Computed example of a mutant assay.
Amino acid sequence: MSQAEPWAFPTWGDREIAGQASDAVHDIPSALRLARALGPRGADMGGRTWSVLSALATLGSIDLSTARIVEPHLDARAILAQAGAGPDTAPPEAVWGVYAAQPPGTDLRCSRTDEGWRLTGTKPWCSLPDQLSHALVTAETSEGSRLVAAPLRDPSVSSDVSAWRPHGLRRVSTGSVHFSGTLVQPVGPVGWYLERPGFAWGGIAVAAVWFGAAAALAGSLWRAARAREPDQVALMHMGTCDFELFGALTLLREAAARIDDRATTAPESALLAARVRARVASTAEHTLAVVGHALGPGPLTSDEAHLTRVSDLTLYLRQHHAERDLARLGAMTLASPESSSGASAG
């Protein structure tokens, strides 16, 4: 991948996965097969975390649609491993989504019956519900919120993706899933999904995808510099992308080490994830702007791969809630012991 190699790929990328991902571009069935093949790596979160983040960054640098399919599958496999789920709950051949959006008006309940737990209602913002075999779904019970494993190909499940008409991530259809008394398996106790340290890890995994896509965008500046002698402004653009991406990469590596440290608590993981996501999202948005300024309209009108990456990343970044997430981070720092100790030292 020398011609399309993104910024500093040898320091963080996985060439084997890059080759596999290249075969899955523009092909959903191939991306689903890749997700299944990489699935066991999900259990490395919390033990060999950098191998997961590197894989996701690599996928993000090749094709964000493929990354958007693989990332939740790896997240689901990590969650199932943390819960100690067996093959009855987690069939090895399954390809998973994680459906945890809970906007106002969501009406989805899980109730215990003589046959087991049954899921009834509608879950919004579900990606690829017409392509995946299973999903981890958050639902309300009489005792509180809990996570369940749901079979999406069951006759009691239907989906509607007709409203999905985006400019980015067009192939990753998203819509609502309707459950009509679907028999599901509980995963962990009530409240476990949000309370476990691993909840924050999934957000860091998404940030690794953003980083990979931003690095690929920045790589276009270095390729342009090889084709034409860069002037001072072009060098400034390259320098800006370099320090932004280096900082984001350093933070992702630090996050991987912190995740692997079993002494890291759930609140510490949450603060870490908020910081990492904010930093990487800012880096990705700045990189989008700098590359746009540097290259002008040309690649947006004649380079389909570049245009697709710009559109896909712009939409993908909206998983970060911008100023609202920064406000949440600010509140978390007030409650953080390390923030208090820093204030005392001053």
Rank of each mutant, 00 (worst) to 15 (best):
P29I: 12
P299D: 13
L194C: 02
P299F: 01
G203M: 07
P40N: 04
R309D: 02
M236F: 12
G116V: 02
L288Y: 03
T265D: 05
G13M: 01
S22D: 09
R112A: 13
S339N: 09
S54G: 05
A4K: 04
L334Q: 06
L272C: 04
R153W: 01
W164L: 08
P230Q: 10
A100S: 02
Q82E: 05
G47F: 11
L307S: 14
A281Y: 00
R223E: 15
S2M: 09
Q82T: 08
S220F: 08
L307K: 15
E338Q: 12
S54L: 09
S339P: 08
R275M: 12
D130R: 00
T287M: 05
L128R: 00
G84I: 04
E16F: 05
A248K: 08
L272E: 01
A149G: 03
L56C: 10
A294K: 10
G47D: 12
S54K: 10
A21C: 10
Q185S: 14
T301R: 15
D114E: 15
L194T: 00
V52Q: 00
T66M: 06
L288G: 03
A248F: 01
H293T: 10
G202A: 07
C110N: 02
A94C: 06
A218E: 02
P189D: 11
L59M: 02
T66E: 11
A94S: 10
G298W: 08
C126Y: 07
L64E: 05
A284Q: 03
P40E: 01
A150N: 04
T287Y: 11
W96S: 04
R258N: 01
P267K: 09
A57R: 00
V137L: 03
R48H: 13
S180I: 00
F199Y: 14
A335H: 07
A225M: 07
I69P: 04
T287R: 04
G212A: 06
L217N: 01
V290I: 13
G168T: 06
G175Y: 14
P337R: 05
G198Q: 03
D14T: 00
D27C: 05
